[in-house]
Nucleic acid binder design. Structure first.
Length: 760
DNA sequence: GGATCTCATGTTTTT
DNA sequence: CATGAGATCC
């Protein structure tokens, strides 16, 4: 088979394995997606399995989409009937189909996101007369989520202390509210399907027969519920092919349990285990550093990662005075590497928490350099988008009181808290959800109700709108048509677009949503809402931009970049402060660092700041303990986290020399480039200066001609005073020098004209 | 019913 | 610091 060409032996073994359980342990960069894709091709082409009998599950829509695209090419469209998607999307589809088998739900159920969940918990707390301050909705939600991930229903929930007793009651009420709203949260999609299968062996059997082959990506990220689901589906035939890497398990806090890999081996003792150990991404040096880091975690299945890319550029470690300098230097270094031929899209800047991105963004803005920010406020989490989705959801499912509550007075239409409270109790008295009661109010003029004249008019006005939208839906309107009707009837633009820049942004977001809705075209409202609920990210819309990528370490999983910067390597930031007192959590922080390191193909820059602003206060930091675990010979630059006292003296010296400590000048100019400096006594066996700026092996560009000025050099100019060289390159027979002058900013000078004097 | 102020809060976030 | 939610005031 031609797809087998170009696979190494282990990959080929995985792809061509026979039936039965197969566990593929795949190190970073070892081609696991390829293996998974080819395995499906192999099943269809060589083992004569119908695509209709295959289920492939991933964790992200992006991964599913990518695999689908690859398969389309490889199978030339012969993948009709293949089930490929995220756990959640696949479960939602099955649950909708089997809705009539579930007590209390119908096929129109909606999916509640985290925001909605919080509202439900708050409602539950209120109904139970519990104080939100004492029992924070987030804590309650965490408890409920943990239970669901472990397949513990409210009935089974065992309370061992006061808090868990409260959680139990809230959980119980929470589920009742969801059911009344014909809604499920993300965890329900998984749990309910397992519950259904356990109650209805006949239903389970149908799916067991259909899904004769099951393939799972990122298996280390499965939680108990997901594992239980897989186990049930595979119970008959045992054709389950899972790919994962416990060292890249970074979602423990979401219920993921990489021990499922061990469970798999126990549950399927006959399973074939295949290790993918050849890395096709990184240089040996990067791989060695990553291995040195991960080795400290206990109870691992050791993988002997190797690469054919021997050697490589050493990893640069650098301490900076504060996060502003760190960010400026990252940007300066990127600019410099770009001048050496790297593409803007070759860079990634990674950090532990989203809040760290701002300083880095500011540095990019100062430098006038474009960047691509991953994550931030997700499109579907924006208020205006959530509002409009709530309108659509209400039209789709008038029983959804959470959506109703969100928009009953948004935009403001004179229905305040008092009227809403009255409406709720009035509806409850009739055994109806608020929107249903409201609809009755407008359809039957004789309805008895407790509202005053003004309130009645307002309520009737809104009820009338809702009625019209429902009519449109009945007449076949799709999401786009409805959205237009809603925007018009509510004058939503007047509400969000106040003429300010933010207002225009908000309206632009609304228009973008409209664009998405129209794109969905013929698809039903129900399907549209399901996609929106399960996608919640539109990163694909700005994929083409070629610019450095800013992202959290979590968001970096699965990606790769020629040059990677990992910033904020300080105790309390990278091992995050919340993880310091728990061994398991610390191990996860280590894996997170490992994931970051293994994203780099050629060059890796690790940095930390001597001082960092946190919650408005500047505090002195300790370099990350993880840095100590990287062997010296892989590093260069000042400091590997060792003898930080000495290094700090150096930093301080430089700080006073160049006023780095002064905020004004910090932003006014960018100090010298980030490069190993032989004046630092503890720098060890520095390689030739060009070494870290060029990828290993073949340099991308011929070595630069000798220049008169060196980066980092102190120079003085007759008019501008003292400055520091940022960059210097020869231009034919002259030399162009970029110098940062304290207080004046950056100037580009021609050496022959500027008559710069070297000061040291 | 709506605007303004005060206070607590604060990882990561595939769905 | 910066955001969000509840309380208070107009």
């Amino acid at each position: 088979m031609n797809v087998l060409q170009g696979l190494n032996q282990a990959q080929r073994a995985a792809v061509t394995a026979g039936r039965g359980p197969i566990l593929v342990l795949a190190g970073p960069g070892s081609g696991k997606t390829r293996v998974l894709t080819y395995r499906i091709v192999y099943l269809v082409q060589e083992m004569q399995v119908s695509p209709w009998n295959i289920m492939a599950v991933t964790f992200t829509n992006k991964a599913a989409r990518e695999m689908q695209q690859r398969l389309e090419t490889a199978l030339e469209g012969r993948l009709r009937g293949l089930t490929i998607g995220t756990f959640h999307a696949t479960c939602a589809r099955i649950l909708r189909r089997e809705a009539q088998q579930m007590v209390g739900y119908d096929a129109d159920f909606v999916i509640f996101d985290t925001d909605d969940q919080r509202q439900v918990v708050r409602q539950a707390l209120q109904e139970l007369n519990l104080d939100e301050k004492k029992f924070s909705p987030n804590k309650m939600l965490a408890g409920i989520g943990a239970a669901k991930n472990e397949l513990i229903t409210p009935e089974q929930y065992a309370a061992s202390n006061y808090i868990s007793e409260v959680t139990h009651r809230v959980y119980q009420r929470y589920q009742e509210i969801l059911l009344a709203n014909n809604a499920m949260d993300f965890d329900d999609l998984l749990m309910n399907i397992v519950l259904l299968f356990d109650q209805r062996p006949d239903v389970l059997e149908r799916y067991q027969q259909k899904y004769e082959h099951i393939l799972v990506d990122e298996f280390q990220d499965t939680n108990t519920a997901q594992y239980a689901l897989l186990k049930r589906l595979a119970a008959g035939h045992g054709n389950i092919f899972v790919v994962g890497d416990s060292d890249q398990s970074i979602y423990r806090w979401r219920g993921a349990d990489f021990r499922n890999i061990n469970r798999f081996r126990r549950d399927y003792p006959e399973a074939q285990m295949i290790l993918l150990e050849q890395n096709y991404r990184s240089t040996q040096i990067i791989l060695d550093a990553a291995k040195a880091i991960i080795r400290h975690n206990k109870d691992r299945v050791e993988k002997e990662l190797f690469t054919e890319r021997q050697g490589g550029a050493r990893i640069v470690v650098h301490e900076f005075y504060n996060e502003v300098e760190e960010a400026d230097m990252v940007v300066a270094t990127i600019e410099r590497l770009m001048l050496q031929g790297l593409d803007p899209g070759d860079f990634a800047v990674m950090y532990r928490t989203n809040s760290q991105s701002r300083v880095i963004e500011e540095a990019f803005l100062r430098a006038g350099l474009k960047y691509r920010l991953v994550g931030a406020t997700r499109f579907y989490a924006r208020r205006e988008i959530k509002d409009l989705i709530a309108y659509l959801r209400l039209v789709h499912n008038p029983a959804d009181s959470i959506s109703f509550n969100r928009i009953i007075n948004t935009p403001p239409r004179g229905i305040g808290a008092k009227t809403q409270g009255l409406l709720h109790s009035w509806a409850a008295g009739q055994g109806l959800q608020p929107a249903e009661a409201l609809l009755r109010l407008v359809s039957d003029p004789d309805t008895q109700h407790p509202f005053a004249g003004r309130a009645t008019a307002m309520l009737a006005g809104f009820g009338q709108m809702l009625r019209e939208w429902l009519g449109l839906l009945r007449n076949g309107a799709n999401a786009g048509d409805l959205l237009d009707a809603i925007l018009q009837a509510t004058d939503y633009r007047g509400y969000v677009d106040d003429g300010t820049e933010e207002g225009q942004d908000r309206w632009a977001n609304v228009m973008e949503l409209r664009g998405v809705a129209i794109e969905y075209g013929e698809v039903s409202l129900s399907e549209f809402l399901e996609n929106v609920a399960l996608i919640s990210d539109v990163d694909d819309l700005e994929e083409e931009a070629s610019a450095p990528t800013l992202l959290t370490l979590h968001a970096a999983k699965g990606l790769e970049f020629p040059a990677v910067f990992i910033t904020g390597l300080e105790d309390g930031v990278l091992p995050h402060s919340r993880s310091l007192d728990d061994g398991e959590e610390l191990a996860e922080e280590r894996r997170l660092f490992y994931v970051g390191l293994t994203r780099a193909k050629d060059q890796l820059y690790l940095s930390y700041a001597f001082r960092r602003n946190l919650y408005g206060e500047s505090a002195v930091t300790t370099p990350s303990r993880f840095l100590l675990d990287i062997p010296d010979q892989l590093l260069e630059g000042i400091g590997s986290g060792r003898s930080s006292g000495q290094r700090r003296e150096e930093t301080k010296r430089r700080a006073s020399d160049w006023n780095w400590a002064s905020p004004a000048s910090t932003t006014a100019y960018r100090p010298g480039e980030w490069r190993p400096d032989s004046s630092y006594p503890e720098s060890k066996s520095l390689p030739e200066p060009s070494r870290w700026t060029e990828p290993a092996g073949e340099p991308r560009q011929p070595a630069a001609t000798q220049t008169q000025f060196r980066t980092g050099q102190k120079v003085s100019h007759a008019k501008f005073g003292e400055g520091i060289v940022i960059e210097s390159k020869s231009t034919g027979n002259d030399e162009e020098v970029v110098v940062a002058f304290a207080g004046l900013g950056i100037k580009k000078l021609v050496a022959s004209m500027a008559r710069l004097e070297i000061r040291e």
